[in-house]
Design a binder for these strands. Structure first.
Lengths: 225, 225
DNA sequence: CTATCTTTCAAACGATCGTTTGAATCCCGG
DNA sequence: CCGGGATTCAAACGATCGTTTGAAAGATAG
């Protein structure tokens, strides 16, 4: 009673979470039914409601399990970056790499289900259901605030409003890159073999995003801000 | 019988399409049911199956109605750009503006439902259902080929694989920008008042994307290609 | 072993889904 | 005015949805 949480305590819970991650990614939140979910996880139909309470609570649990550690890692990466050169302001590229690193590294974890989650996360930014978007926003808030402040220090000459938009653009590029699995093939007409080479993808993304963030300010933009 | 297609011929059809556009955007394809759809359109429940055949066919019709003219406009913009300076290769920024222009202009059409569609389109790039992604890909294919070729001519020194990725990044930025309505506020902590000022948004996007597309090629990237 | 709490199970709940049906109604050329 | 194809209508179809229930099975402590 005192400490029974040691070994395979919640095998049912984690098996449900793993399968939910995969099926939500494949079919969406509404498209993945409790019956196909519990069947694939080899648990009883009532298990989800018993362990999580409802389908919505399960969705929430799926996000919390991965998103919290990921954003902790992001903040840690930024802390480390700032600690490396005390008193100096980190360059935009370093901040960008600190942010996209944890996400990209998770995509290499195919066995552990990390890749499923990353793709699920990417398409959830544009999820129709408001409650889910609100949850994502809430879970992201702490890390987001830290990074926004870091970018503001790194680019003091940029109008705040323009910076917000460029952060938004960077978010979109990252989300879409992680979520859109087959659209690359659509453009290229072929399947890139290195799609899951996180290191190479990080180089490509960092180059693109850094250049975009540092794009020259035209008069029209400067005037509007 | 010969020509009865003149005035309000298919008022029911278009009313269904308009409402479908709005509800699919708000609740997703599965979340928007035929009953709430037909109720909001003030038509009978059976009207959708009568006029379109099925829900899936309705989804297809919603996309075809807007996407075909939009991509025609995109190709026309590229044709015009190339005609302005015969024999010369258009600059990347011009190509980018030709591509994002038609989409952004549609976002200003709030009354005609264009804004609804653009937001719907943006989140459909990451739609779980394979059949819908395939449809989008098919409708995009002609314009995509033209623009890919234009970028290749404009950036002959860039490795093909890197170019494909950067086009992919640009696609993501555009899609996410159009689709994510409140995520910006969620992240930025403020609401940009000029969200639907298409002209200003085009300036911001063009600056960001042009810089990203022209980002310097590092050795790691050059070596991989 | 017995008693107690946790977990699993089969079965069913009411609600809603997309679709179909057949009759009623509208529209229009003759 | 009448006849026939196009359209609308109310009603119901079977299927599936998320959730609940109460009993059966497992685990744990005394």
């Amino acid at each position: 009673m005192s400490l029974r949480a040691i070994k395979p305590q919640h095998e049912t819970r984690t098996r449900i979470l793993d399968v939910a991650e995969e099926l939500f990614m494949q079919h969406g939140f509404e498209g993945a039914s409790m019956r196909m979910l519990t069947a694939k996880a080899s648990v009883n139909l009532a298990a989800v409601n018993y362990h999580f309470g409802s389908k919505h609570a399960l969705i929430e649990a799926v996000f919390r399990r991965r998103l919290d550690p990921m954003n902790v890692a992001r903040i840690a990466a930024l802390d480390k970056l700032e600690a490396e050169a005390p008193g100096r302001v980190p360059a935009p590229e370093g901040i960008i790499r600190a942010f996209i690193g944890p996400g990209l590294r998770m995509i290499e974890d195919a066995r552990g289900g990390g890749r499923n989650f990353i793709r699920l996360l990417g398409r959830t930014y544009t999820e129709p259901a408001k409650s889910i978007r609100a949850l994502i926003g809430h879970l992201y808030a702490p890390a987001m605030e830290r990074y926004k402040a870091a970018f503001e220090r790194a680019l003091p000459q940029m109008p705040r409003e323009e910076l917000v938009w460029r952060i938004h653009f960077m978010f979109g590029t990252l989300a879409y890159t992680l979520a859109a699995t087959d659209t690359v093939q659509l453009i290229a007409g072929c399947k890139p073999e290195d799609r899951y080479d996180a290191r190479l993808l990080e180089e490509r993304l960092a180059a693109f995003l850094t250049a975009g963030l540092n794009a020259p300010l035209k008069n029209t933009i400067r005037k509007a801000a």
